[in-house]
Structure formats: C-alpha cells, structure tokens
C-alpha cells in the first residue's frame, strides 16, 4: 500500500490545465479539499468507498487480522497488475499471464513433489521460464509483428496445452511447505496477528516496479513507446526492445503471482484461469488506457485491490459467485468508458 505515493507525472491530470491554473487565490477551504481530492487518482477513492461499504456490513473486516488476510488474498492479482501495466502502457496486451500462473503451480508441484530441498533451485528456474515466456511474447509481437492480442492469446493456448499434455490432465505432486509459505504464512506481529509474506512481497515488488516505471530512463521510454511509437523511435528509443522488456516484466510478475497463489490454492489445471482478464481489468480500473501511454503501478495495484474488494462485497451481499464474471465485465466497460470520458473532456 505504500505505492499510494505515486509520482505526479505518471497520473493523468484530474482536471484540464486551464481549469487547474484558473483556481482563484484565497478560495474557501472546501475548494482546496476538493482540489486535493482531484489530485488523487480516483481509483483510491473508489477503493476506500468499497472498503467502507464492506466494513458497514461486516465491521470485523477492517480489523488488522482479517484485513491483512484480505490483502494476502489480493497479492497475486496485484502483482500481476503491476507487471501487466508495463505492457499496457507500452501499447500492448499480455493475455498469457493466467496460463503462466497455472503453469507455475503445476510445474512446481510436479518437479518438487513436496520435497522442500528442491525449492531453492525451483524458484530461480521458474523465474527464468517466466522471463523466457515474456521474451517470446515480446519477440513474436515486435519482430514477427503479430499483434500482441493474438500472440499472447496463442501463448495462453500453448501453455495451457503444454500443461495439460505434461500432466495428463490431472496434475500430480504437491508443493513443499517452504514453497507454500510465501503465500500462506507471515511474520508474527505482537497484537496484530500475522503480517503475511505475500503482503511484504507485494510491497517489495510494487515499490521496485514503481521505481522502474516512474523514476528510471527505461520507464520514461515505456511511456513514450506506447504514447507515440513513431515519435519515440525518431527520438532514439528502441521501441521494439522496450516493448519486449515490458513483456519480460509481465512474465516475471506472473511467476511471482503463481508462487504466491500456490500458497493457498490447490494444484489444479485451473489455478490461474481468468487471471489475465482480472489483471487487465485492474489496470484499466487504475486509469490506464488500452492503446498505451497512460497508467501507473500504484493505481494498478489499487485497481487490483478494488476488484478483489468488490468480489468480497458481492459475496457479503450473498450474490452468486457466477455473477462475479458478469460484474467484472461491467466494471471493465465502465472504467474504460470513464477514462475515455475524462480524456475527451481534458483533450
């Protein structure tokens, strides 16, 4: 959650320039508060509102232990969103992450078969495999010029098929406890219960990716490559390399998400199903524009938390789980329409 301190430059302005500068001096305090609120990406306000609604129905939700457990449940999606946003800002899609999450869980279970001694080499191997998947996505998109929507959809099918073939449809083996600890256990805090490792990992990954996107030369080139690839290329940006790197980051984040998810999910061929759309939904909720050029890590993490808390709220209201997908679809459409509306107003 420290990623709240998103960089001002990475956020779309909440109000058009003219309006902002036109704010009179010595305005009443109410106006100042309103302007402060406008400077915050709206997704944080939505998140606060949803959490407030949940707490209203179920006050225990905001007590430390249940809330930390909620954050732990959010962590895989939040990490995925933080990686996906690189690809989206660069002007592409990565639909392969859900299948990659599944592959991580199934492959880890099969290779280690519950033996804790294997974990130390298994994790680097999985990360390398994730980077390779991202690299292939990136090269197919940028060198073979296959639209990323198609390239990563193909990768989703290839990974899904490979996992099915390799496991014979019924994944075997199990995950070692020291592998599952990342998504399952945490540090004991006196009086507050357990601070999950997953939350700490989310924090670390979030901060690292935020620094990379908003405070590095590479990050600026990601925005440029998505915002106007021709201008970026004519300014010396190696657009193909930047986009490929974004896919690698997304692949790595999917591996981390898979490891976290492995802590509290079963070893099944559906472990990561649907995560690709949830990750894109989270990024769009965070104000990123499909087509590239806009978005931020902080707001994408907030988008993931919001999506997850909306699911929690629906659960609390007793709505069927099958409604989840429909609601998710409506949220994506609504968020994209809102973003388009805001862009039009300020353009």
């Amino acid at each position: 959650m420290t990623t709240t301190a998103g960089p001002p430059g990475a956020q779309p302005p909440a109000v058009p320039e003219a309006q902002r500068t036109a704010a009179p001096q010595g305005e009443p305090a109410g106006g100042r508060v309103r302007r402060l609120l406008r400077a915050v990406p709206p997704i944080w306000l939505v998140l606060a509102a949803v959490i407030f609604l949940i707490a209203w129905r179920n006050p225990t939700f905001v007590e430390p232990a249940p809330f930390l457990a909620f954050l732990r449940r959010c962590a895989p999606l939040a990490v995925l969103a933080a990686g996906q946003v690189f690809v989206i800002i660069a002007g592409e899609f990565d639909l392969s992450v859900g299948a990659l999450v599944t592959a991580v869980v199934v492959v880890a279970a099969r290779l280690s078969d519950g033996d804790a001694a294997h974990t130390w080499w298994l994790i680097p191997l999985l990360l390398a495999a994730g980077a390779l998947v991202g690299l292939v996505n990136g090269l197919v998109t940028t060198r073979l010029r296959v639209p990323s929507f198609i390239a990563t959809l193909g990768m989703l099918l290839v990974l899904g098929g490979a996992v099915f073939l390799w496991s014979g449809g019924a994944p075997r083996g199990s995950l070692a406890d020291n592998f599952r600890q990342f998504g399952r256990f945490g540090v004991e805090l006196p009086g507050l219960g357990q601070l999950p490792y997953a939350v700490l990992i989310l924090l670390a990954v979030g901060v690292a990716l935020w620094l990379l996107l908003s405070h590095s030369r590479f990050g600026h080139q990601v925005y440029a490559a998505g915002g106007n690839p021709r201008a970026a290329a004519l300014s010396g940006v190696d657009v193909r390399r930047v986009r490929t790197a974004a896919f690698v980051i997304s692949g790595l984040s999917a591996v981390v998400a898979g490891i976290l998810l492995g802590g509290f999910t079963g070893v099944t061929a559906e472990a990561g199903a649907g995560y690709e759309f949830q990750a894109i939904a989270a990024v769009v909720l965070g104000g990123a524009v499909l087509g590239g050029g806009r978005g931020s890590v902080g707001a994408s993490v907030a988008g993931a938390l919001t999506l997850q808390s909306v699911f929690t709220l629906l659960n609390l209201l007793g709505l069927a789980k099958s409604l989840r997908d429909a609601v998710q679809g409506l949220i994506i459409i609504g968020a994209a329409a809102y973003a388009a509306h805001r862009l039009r107003r300020s353009g």
Binding site: G9, R217, H220, A224, R230, A231, A232, G293
Partner: peptide, 26 residues
C-alpha cells in the same frame, strides 16, 4: 519532423518528458 503531433511528440506526456526523451534514450 514535418508532423509534430504524429512523429515529434508524445502528446500526453509532459514538457519535461518530451524534452528529455532523446537524451534519456541515449
């Protein structure tokens, strides 16, 4: 470039980012 908007600038980025774009990519 002849066409500033389509080939010269990343319109939704700041003056700062557009000014430093080439230097950063170097």
């Amino acid at each position: 470039t002849e066409d500033r908007k389509s080939e010269g600038l990343v319109l939704q980025r700041s003056v700062r980012d557009n000014t430093l774009l080439a230097a950063r990519s170097l």
